[in-house]
């Protein structure tokens, strides 16, 4: 009986002493943290993708709490909705940024761009790019080794087996920009999602002269400037033999798509054009 009592008392006393020490230590080393950081973090999507330019959601939340003006900050994953919530927590103003999307600007499918060599090294684009210009004659185009797929934390980009090019899943893409920085060839760009997802863009990054570019890839932008002349809004500029469509000026009229001799300009998510289905259906028929 005595033993039990002594044990209980000793251990109890020890526990109490430890608790008191712990309390004082905790007081002494207490770190003050703005409770709003937690609140903002709660609102954020917790994807930790780094798309905002900060290392993870918590760092972004801290930055938002610290900053006086958060109108330039944006969480690409959560979009305007999340930013509005975060702004409400902080009582700050936020502008709704236009939702964006990753766009792959290469049209060098196996058909358009014949393979001249075979790459047999470590299968990452970064290493292949540091070694040589790629399997095809186009030293600007996609290597098809999937660094962008590796980089994507949202499973929103995959390699199309047939074309050998990456494809962005529009539903899943949050425009965090991880693939953009992963691509050693700067093929991927974040562009405006557009109304109903409608976009027009030049699907090529080749800066070679027209004849050279066309020789290696039948769907290359040859810098012919037809689109530049055609565009009624001045949204297209040709620099270094390469056309670029400014998505803030483009009104999605699609006139450039029609004039492009190599079909390097792509339109997506538009309803089918009237003359086009006819051609397609005849093609289908002939195929049958």
């Amino acid at each position: 009986m005595n033993v039990v009592l002594i044990t209980i008392i000793t251990l109890g006393a020890l526990g109490a002493v430890a608790a008191i020490i712990l309390y004082f230590v905790a007081q002494k080393f207490k770190v003050f943290e703005d409770p709003r950081i937690d609140q903002v973090e709660e609102v954020l999507p917790a994807a930790n993708c780094g798309g905002c330019g900060f290392p993870g959601c918590r760092a972004f939340a801290e930055a938002m709490v610290k900053a006086d003006d958060i109108s330039t900050m944006n969480c690409p994953v959560g979009g305007a909705e999340v930013m509005a919530k975060a702004a409400a927590v902080l009582g700050k103003e936020v502008e709704a940024a236009a939702p964006k999307l990753a766009v792959v600007k290469c049209n060098g499918t196996c058909e358009n761009r014949p393979r001249l060599t075979t790459y047999d090294g470590a299968s990452t684009c970064a290493i292949a790019a540091s070694l040589y210009g790629g399997e095809t004659g186009c030293s600007y185009g996609c290597y098809g080794l999937g660094d962008c797929v590796e980089a994507c934390t949202f499973d929103a980009i995959y390699m199309d087996e047939e074309t050998g090019l990456p494809v962005v899943d529009e539903e899943k893409c949050v425009a965090c920009g991880a693939c953009v920085s992963a691509c050693p060839k700067n093929i991927i760009e974040l562009r405006k999602q557009g109304p109903k997802g409608r976009r027009v863009f030049v699907s090529c990054v080749n800066k070679d002269k027209g004849a050279v570019a066309r020789k290696v890839c039948s769907a290359a932008c040859i810098g012919c400037k037809k689109c530049e002349k055609e565009c009624p809004f001045g949204a297209i500029t040709v620099v270094n033999n390469l056309a670029y469509i400014d998505d803030s000026k483009c009104k999605l009229c699609r006139k450039c798509v029609v004039v492009c001799p190599t079909n390097a300009i792509h339109e997506v998510n538009f309803p089918p054009r009237k003359p086009k289905p006819a051609i397609e259906s005849t093609e289908k028929k002939s195929a049958e």
Binding site: T117, L131, Y132, G133, G134, G137, S139, D208
Partner: peptide, 8 residues
Amino acid sequence: VLDASGYK
């Protein structure tokens, strides 16, 4: 011209 690495 193209060099050994396929770059110009």
